[in-house]
Nucleic acid binder design. Structure first.
Length: 185
DNA sequence: GCGACAG
DNA sequence: ATCTTGTCGC
């Protein structure tokens, strides 16, 4: 899942891309275009992106077994980020993979692909900083709904065979912005 | 009070 | 998130 935005307007395009975990190939693609009415406020991302993301998901020929979000799950100020909203609303397993640190502090994970460190706040373990590529900045994984942190971590690494960003999110980013630039306004 | 702040 | 080309490095 991902959304691309146009500058100076509320125009945006959301993309839902399903990837086969076995062959890592794109299965289905669904796009949703429309105005975004909620501003970007750190901590309230779900209220901004949820409507268009749900619309894109509804357009898929078959519901995905697992939903990977571009953002956080429970590693959130109120322990309920975008991935939690999506998973709960769809009653589907979900988790989030964010590109930058947000709330929890963490140690630097090992440099090798697959290595990770804990994202924690006090006694609460909120997620993991996961290295998807050796020697490259980690991504931040946290649980959304009905999935373990271990499974979310494994899927994130398996779905990132070549780039830092996992294939589902990467493909969704590519097709959404491609569609955005294809027909602006 | 100040800084930081998913996308 | 978005505006942008080349360039440094493995």
């Amino acid at each position: 899942m991902d959304i691309s935005y146009a500058i100076g307007s509320d125009h945006a395009v959301a993309a839902a891309v399903t990837i086969g975990v076995q062959d890592l190939r794109v299965r289905d693609v669904s796009l949703a275009t429309g105005p975004v009415r909620f501003p970007y406020v750190p901590g309230l991302l779900a209220f901004r992106e949820l409507p268009l993301l749900l619309e894109a998901l509804a357009g898929l020929p078959a519901p995905p077994e697992m939903v990977m979000c571009d953002g956080y799950g429970i590693a959130h100020p109120r322990r309920f980020g975008l991935a939690c909203h999506l998973g709960l609303l769809l009653d589907r397993p979900s988790f989030g993979v964010a590109k930058t640190d947000f709330v929890a502090g963490h140690d630097e994970p090992g440099a090798r692909r697959g290595q990770w460190s804990v994202l924690a706040e006090g006694d609460a373990i909120l997620g993991r900083a996961v290295r998807t590529r050796t020697g490259v900045k980690p991504v931040y994984v946290s649980v959304g709904h009905r999935v373990s942190l271990g499974d979310a971590t494994d899927l994130t690494v398996r779905l990132s065979p070549r780039y830092r960003i996992p294939e589902p999110t990467r493909q969704a980013d590519i097709v959404s912005r491609q569609e955005l630039r294809r027909g602006p306004s």
